[in-house]
């Protein structure tokens, strides 16, 4: 915010730069760590609610509707259904993918909650609700406990899912 002009030539101060940096230790908690460790092995791990039986992936440790701990680990399939999507055509800070690209809600087989994933290996105008997709993982050496381990989803070649089968998971 210091400028190069002379003191005399400077106008009144109108802005103040106040950079702020804080350092934290972060933990996603026990349940999400199960999910993240699964990713490091190339697997999707969810948890089941003991009360309603729904499977959450990832689980944050509780069933969001019952408020009880989800304790049973469940391994999910590598394939799922696109429930809805949008095509991202806007650049923004932190973005690492070339636009336009498809961002979809993917409902993994066996799960009761979809999550957002990148869809590739298909032209953006061919994506559709109900499309069956499979996860493509990074090379085994590059697997980490992070969603970055999932490179993207791509069409699995199976016939589209029936709207009735996923309409509650939009």
């Amino acid at each position: 915010m210091a400028d190069d002009s002379t003191i005399e030539g400077r106008g009144p101060v109108t802005t103040l730069a106040t950079p702020i940096r804080l350092d934290f230790d972060f933990t996603p908690g026990i349940a999400q760590s199960v999910f993240l460790r699964g990713l490091a092995r190339g697997r999707f791990m969810g948890q089941r609610c003991p009360k309603c039986g729904k499977v959450y992936v990832p689980s944050r440790g509780s069933c969001p509707t019952d408020g009880v701990p989800t304790t049973e680990d469940v391994e999910l399939a590598n394939v799922g259904t696109v429930t809805t999507y949008c095509v991202v055509n806007v650049p923004f800070a932190g973005q690492s993918i070339e636009i336009p690209y498809i961002c979809a809600q993917v409902l993994l087989d066996g799960a009761n909650l979809s999550f957002m994933g990148l869809i590739q290996e298909i032209p953006t105008d061919e994506i559709r609700m109900g499309m069956r997709v499979e996860a493509v993982w990074v090379d085994e050496a590059d697997l980490t406990p992070s969603l970055a381990s999932v490179k993207y989803f791509r069409p699995s070649g199976e016939p589209d899912a029936d709207y009735e089968s996923y309409k509650e998971y939009l």
């Binding site: 940096r21 934290f24 933990t27 760590s33 199960v34 993240l36």
Partner: peptide
């Protein structure tokens, strides 16, 4: 069933 940790910078 142990929690992962990482450093996090808010800047």
């Amino acid at each position: 069933h142990e929690a992962l940790h990482a450093s996090h910078v808010l800047e």
